[in-house]
Simulated scan of single mutants.
Amino acid sequence: MRITKVFNNNAVLGLDPVGGERVLLGTGIGFGVRPGDPVDASLIGKTFVPTHGTPPERLVRLLADIPADDLDLAAEVLEDVQDVLGPDAAEHVLLPLADHLSFVLRRTRDGAPAIEYPLQWEVPTLYPAEAALARRALRVVERVRGVRLPDAEAVPVALHFVNAQLGTADMSQTVQLTRVLTEVLQLIADDLGVRIDPDATVTARFITHLRYLVVDLRAERAPRSAPDDQMAAALRDARPREWGTAERVAALVGERFGRTVDPTEVPLLALHVDRLRSEGDR
């Protein structure tokens, strides 16, 4: 990795071998070096990934405003859940999670009322695994700091964990995704006249598929897989109602994100819709 910009003695911007930017922190990592010099890996303390919403300069400013012990607390929270999120989660969400925890701990110390977050129902329903991790994270905060944060804080923390799995730090995109997922499930329930069980395995698999469909859509990547034309035609003929619902799902997702969903996604969506219908008919 090579240095592309020096912010100060303890912060630089590095470029990895595949062209990815990283904000690198470490005592003395920026001292006496210039753009183009190799990074001394032994000096790297923490690594952060800049995003469209949080460019490198803003990352460095945020880091200057977050107390070091709050940054360490967020790192401990992520270390506790990395068995689920993976070891790279901290690169994307350590800083925004630290910023949020610092903010809510300060409010709690000041005796401010708990924040009423939107999506109180949607987040635990759509992301049960991340919601469970968020409750676990609040217990880590209580153990480390001796402060019991309001239960409602599990909502934003869970959204940070969703971000970690999607490889982004942009909370607004995840909030938008959550609202679109809710719309999609309601569309399917209304179209087919069934109740969607939020706890069913088929629902969890469908939501996972939609999450990665949206990631690919935003990145303008081709679908990851698709049935062949013969299988798709057979499915369309055998399940015309579910196929029509899948087409409406694709149109809704495309409209909400300002993209065109590849037609090869429709058979995959139809398979998920059929499973949701079967589960709802039980």
Rank of each mutant, 00 (worst) to 15 (best):
M1N: 07
I3A: 00
T4W: 10
K5S: 05
N8Y: 02
N8G: 02
N10Y: 06
N10M: 00
A11R: 15
A11N: 12
L13I: 07
L13S: 04
L15R: 09
P17G: 08
V18C: 10
G20C: 14
G20Q: 15
L24C: 00
G26V: 03
T27W: 14
T27V: 13
I29Y: 01
G30Q: 05
G30Y: 06
G36A: 10
P38V: 03
V39R: 04
D40F: 04
I44R: 03
I44Y: 02
G45P: 02
T51N: 12
E57I: 04
R58I: 07
R58H: 13
R58P: 04
L59A: 01
V60D: 01
R61Q: 14
R61M: 12
D65P: 04
P67M: 07
D70Q: 13
L71M: 12
E76K: 14
L78H: 00
L78D: 02
E79R: 14
D83P: 01
D83Y: 13
D83L: 10
G86F: 11
D88S: 14
D88A: 14
D88H: 15
L94I: 03
P96E: 04
P96Q: 08
A98P: 00
D99P: 02
V104H: 07
R107P: 00
T108N: 15
R109Q: 12
R109E: 15
P113S: 10
A114H: 09
A114F: 11
L119M: 12
L119G: 03
V123L: 09
L133E: 00
L133S: 01
A134D: 03
R136C: 05
A137Q: 05
L138N: 02
R139T: 13
V141D: 01
V141T: 05
E142T: 07
R143S: 13
V144Q: 09
R145G: 03
G146F: 02
R148I: 10
L149G: 00
A154D: 06
V155R: 07
V155Y: 07
V155C: 06
A158C: 05
A158Y: 04
A158E: 07
H160N: 09
H160E: 12
Q165Y: 14
L166T: 07
G167K: 09
A169Q: 09
Q176F: 14
L177F: 12
R179P: 02
Q186A: 12
L187D: 08
L187N: 04
V194Q: 11
V194K: 07
D197S: 12
A200F: 11
R205F: 14
R205D: 15
F206Q: 06
T208F: 11
H209A: 09
R211C: 03
V214N: 05
L217T: 05
L217Y: 06
A219N: 14
R221L: 13
A226P: 00
P227Q: 08
P227K: 09
D228G: 03
A232V: 03
A233W: 09
A233D: 09
L235M: 11
R236F: 08
A238R: 13
R239E: 15
P240Q: 10
E242D: 12
G244W: 07
T245P: 00
A246F: 00
V249N: 01
A251H: 11
L252Q: 01
L252K: 00
G254L: 08
R256L: 05
P263W: 11
L268K: 14
V273G: 07
R275M: 15
R277T: 11
S278C: 14
R282K: 14
